[in-house]
Nucleic acid binder design. Structure first.
Lengths: 342, 342
DNA sequence: CGAAAGGCTGAAAACCTTTACAGATCTTGA
DNA sequence: TCAAGATCTGTAAAGGTTTTCAGCCTTTCG
């Protein structure tokens, strides 16, 4: 049915070994033969069967990508970044959406592990220990989560927070609310930690408003508590929450930004589309995805672990090497949802 | 390194043939042996190498999914639907984002074709003829595009338009603008065709406002022309365009819905988050993805084409069979962006 | 008790590719 | 012209699985 290497060999009048060499190590075969083989291959539309190749080389040429929820507009950007870089490196990518289910994450990692060279795992919800175990089973890089020993790509939350708070302070705000995301979320913990650190060095009061789901509804549900906190500005866990706040503020007749400055996090495309457009801390999405793939490919190119790696010393892909951690810059996008006090 | 069928065979004291049978055709092996083998397999954490299996069975257990632009919020829903159904059927899915590039579509289809059993191709931008050719090379189902001879999943645009226009007419609107999407888009052509058909039977004037990109900016750029058309309501090609309109109307001081009713298409999650929330024709996303996978799997289960299929009769997967076309229902989501005239 | 029938199991081929090794051809220098 | 070396090419094994075929053992019936 499909054209195989044998067909090419037969038509070109050479052995299959020569065909594979002409295609993958052209320099070792005589130019005349090489060109003939390549011509035949092209005319027959031959492409090596990657599964068969993977069987022998141990490399599938495929990558896996796990995201918690594709419906969260933060993730498509990352996925696109991963795709773009993977395609450049001639790799295809398996995508799995875990529906925010930590248990599904482990299952899917294992399910995919056999078919890929490595995985990019995005904002995983599962526990550190479990993740570490999985990282021992299959090469893996983390995006938007940091665990010592596993290569990771994150963004400068602390710096982002510094810019955000700096912006509000410059506008005269002295009481700021923070609407926190899920307690179990690493990103939320990091943002909160950064925020507290920043606040400590500035002359502002911070009011923390309970944990909400990182979605529109979470913002809606937190809005009234924010209003009750008598603050002049609010930083939301992410843009979706911020937009939920906006929605509820509008319904309550609180003008934004005149009556309340709202600041988001992520800079999802949506942030620029709402009215007023959202001031937000932009986190790289595309670039984070790309960086994830870069790290992963780099990891895979490292000398392979000794067959039967010792238990007592981490396998090379555990990420003990340099350049294994990457922190991308963040920047503040000032739009219409923040303004000066009075 | 990884545990293979040989390991299981050795430990269980049987041949590899028995192992594979115990796992994939349990009824043919003696219960005692079967149980022992399965136990050993489980304890060793054995999972068949799918690449190797695919080599011999011709089935990879993988599906491919092509989308034009994951950043368009319409598509993540479809992707999630595909994922969900694929996972139920124990298939993994390759995702490729074509970045709205028709040329990339063909390349990616061919690139993926070797590694999957079939493809779900979503809202493809390429020409019918090209798509037909590709469908001859690899089992394929179309989602949100209909081409005779290729299995497809679409939604009832005509019915959706009937509901949309009916809603506006009931509210007293007599002049309606339509902001069209890209001329090359099949969805746009269908929507326009449906709209014209509906308008013909109702007592309303239709003003068509030029073709715009199917994004937020497209709506922004069309808004002024809509205002100049002295209509009381506008139907946008999709929600993103509608939201762009909303944005520009707000900037121009035109109150929505009091001064202008705005109606979208798709019902992306965002539609409910903007202010005012968008009245829109809801197209199934998740269900469309699921239906696409259903159709594809059904296609694959059909008797395989005779080895060396005749040129003069379509291969089975060309979709000459019944049940090969599926049209899902649409419904109008009435929210805050439409109201009665005066 | 013997033979046929049926149920289970194992050996080996097949899927498509890459690669180690050995063989063949060509070039070069004497 | 011959030998040695370099260059190129072919054979065969390997990778993990499924499947065909044949053979073994057990059962059943005469």
């Amino acid at each position: 049915m499909a054209v195989t290497i044998k067909d090419v060999a037969r038509v070109a009048g050479v052995s299959v070994a020569t065909v594979t060499r002409a295609l993958s190590t052209p320099e070792v075969v005589r130019p005349a033969t090489r060109d003939r083989v390549r011509e035949v291959a092209a005319s027959l539309g031959y492409h090596p069967n990657r599964a068969a190749r993977g069987l022998i080389t141990g490399r599938t040429g495929n990558l896996g990508l796990l995201v918690p929820d594709l419906a969260n507009p933060f993730f498509p950007g990352i996925v696109k970044g991963v795709q773009a870089r993977a395609r450049e490196a001639d790799h295809a990518v398996f995508l799995a959406d875990t529906d925010e289910d930590p248990a599904a994450e482990a299952t899917l990692v294992r399910r995919l592990a056999k078919q890929v060279d490595g995985l990019v795992v995005c904002s995983p919800r599962m526990a550190d220990a479990e993740l570490r175990r999985l990282a021992g089973e299959v090469p893996m890089v983390l995006v938007y989560r940091r665990i010592p020993g596993i290569p990771s790509v994150t963004a400068g939350f602390l710096d982002g927070m510094r810019q955000a708070v700096g912006h509000l302070v410059a506008l005269g705000h002295r009481r700021i609310a923070y609407v926190a995301g899920p307690k179990t979320s690493w990103a939320n913990r990091e943002r909160l930690r950064s925020l507290r650190a920043v606040v400590r060095t500035a002359d502002v009061d911070l009011v923390e408003v309970g944990n909400v789901m990182p979605r529109f509804e979470g913002g809606v549900s937190a809005a009234d508590r924010v209003l009750a906190a008598s603050v002049t500005s609010v930083i939301a866990y992410n843009d979706l929450v911020a937009i939920g706040l906006l929605h509820r503020f509008a319904a309550r007749g609180v003008p934004v930004p005149a009556g309340m400055s709202v600041l988001g996090f992520d800079d999802i495309p949506l942030a620029a589309m709402v009215h007023p457009a959202l001031t937000t801390v932009a986190l790289p999405q595309n670039r984070a995805g790309q960086a994830g793939v870069d790290l992963l490919l780099q990891l895979l190119d490292q000398p392979a672990p000794h067959t039967g790696p010792r238990r007592d010393q981490p396998a090379p892909h555990m990420g003990t090497h340099a350049g294994t951690r990457r922190e991308l810059p963040t920047h503040l996008m000032v739009r219409g949802s923040t303004t000066s006090v009075h």
